Amino acid sequence: MNFGARVLKTGLAVTLALYLATLLKFPSPTGAGIAAIFALQPSIYRSWRHFLDQIQTSTIGAVMALLGGMLLSNQPIAVGIVSILVIMLSMKMNRADTIGLTLVTVISVMDASGQWQFALNRFLMIMTGVVSAFFINILVIPPKPRKQYINQIESVFSSLSLLLRTAVSHEMKESVFRDEKNSLEGSIRSLADKYALFEEEQKKLRKPKYSETRQMVVYKNLLSSLQKGYEVLDAIDRHYFQAERSEETNAVFDRHLELLIKYHEHILLKFQDKIKPGISETGPLGDDNDSFLESVVQGYEHGSASRLRLAVVAGAVYDYGYQLERLDRVADQINRGSEEKDKL
């Protein structure tokens, strides 16, 4: 695991929580440190939402734990019963992400066996950790998920292009290819999670500006292009090598995939403002993409399983190319908008 901002902030949040717990003379500051670990979130909005949700569920959990301690004592079976009830209630409230720390609160409070002063002390100790994590997250190296998103897009494309270039030629060892493909799938899923976070922030925090809405369109199309590229890999893995094919067929697929990879790379350079506006490969790609699909489908005969498998792969490749054309148009619109702004 690399040393990054999240690692640093976790350490700082734990340190601050322990210092505050000691300063406030809590009998056992450890709970505050544990709470700080649970409470750290990947964005400022998530931190604020988690902060509010955690206060709500922890308060409910503390009350239930206090009642449980008074009525059932603090025996393990009683703690387990109250924990189950708290989990069910948290799920009902759509607060599943707060369950871990809420259970820490429940166990800490039930240890008081119905003594409300001691229970309140434990609850405040947990909240000290939550507050510490919240302030560390927004004050120390605030999260920049959008910058991370763009950097990750470039990294994921690098992995995707390598796998696509070697998929049909079958040059890479199967075990290595499988590991790289699984890693790529995880990276794309991580990007999708980040995009969902952007959408959530845009909808909840404020009315988005036009520039922010346009940026979301860019992010969505960048992600969709990578997802379509991965679908090509998946189709090749599932169908291509199970089909009978000639060397000419291999060459057709290999050549078209190389064209799409270069086109994808070309578009990313546009977004980085490294390509002159107006220089586009959309026209030629449109013709080549159609011709490629037709060349694969036209030889299909009813009952030919091999040809059908190749058609499935060709369809995935065609969709990838179609998505790249959409991404290219978005890039051109962004560049034109930047040019007009510069003229003004």
Rank of each mutant, 00 (worst) to 15 (best):
N289V: 00
L269Y: 00
S224T: 04
H256G: 10
V252W: 07
N250V: 12
L269A: 09
L269M: 13
G286K: 02
V296E: 09
V252S: 05
V296R: 04
E258T: 14
Q242V: 01
L257C: 04
V296H: 08
E248A: 01
Y230C: 06
Y263V: 07
D288E: 12
D290P: 05
R238V: 05
S246I: 13
S280F: 06
R245A: 03
L260P: 02
S295M: 03
F253M: 07
F271T: 02
T282L: 10
D290S: 11
E258D: 15
Y263F: 15
E265Q: 12
A235H: 10
H256I: 07
Q242H: 07
D288L: 05
G278A: 06
G286Y: 15
L268E: 13
S280W: 12
G283R: 11
S246F: 06
R238G: 03
L259W: 00
R238W: 01
Q272I: 07
L285S: 10
D237N: 12
L226Y: 01
L260S: 01
E247C: 06
G229T: 11
K228I: 07
L269Q: 15
Y230S: 07
Y240I: 14
P284G: 03
Y240Q: 06
K276F: 06
P284Q: 03
Q242R: 00
I275P: 06
I275K: 02
Q272P: 09
G283M: 12
K262V: 01
S291Y: 01
Q227N: 11
Y263K: 11
D288Y: 15
L285T: 00
Q242Y: 06
E231P: 00
L259A: 08
K274T: 09
V232C: 11
T282M: 08
D288Q: 14
R238Y: 02
D273H: 06
A243R: 13
H256A: 04
L223T: 14
Q298D: 11
L269S: 14
S291K: 08
L223Q: 02
T249Y: 03
F292H: 10
H266Y: 01
S295Q: 00
H239Q: 02
L259H: 13
H266E: 13
L233D: 13
D234H: 13
Q227V: 15
E231C: 07
H239L: 05
A235L: 12
S225Q: 13
E265D: 10
K262E: 08
Q272R: 15
L257A: 03
S295R: 13
L293H: 00
K276M: 11
S224P: 00
I236N: 15
E258R: 15
L285E: 05
F241Q: 12
H264A: 15
R255W: 11
K274C: 00
E281I: 02
E247Y: 05
E248I: 01
F253G: 05
T282Y: 11
D290I: 04
A251I: 05
K228E: 14
L259G: 04
S225I: 12
Y240C: 08
L257G: 01
D237Y: 14
R255P: 10
Q298G: 01
Y240V: 10
D234T: 02
L268D: 00
D237H: 04
A235W: 10
I261E: 07
L226F: 08
K274V: 05
E231A: 04
I275S: 03
I236F: 00
K274E: 11
D288T: 09
S224M: 02
G286W: 05
Q227W: 03
F253R: 14
L257V: 11
I236P: 03
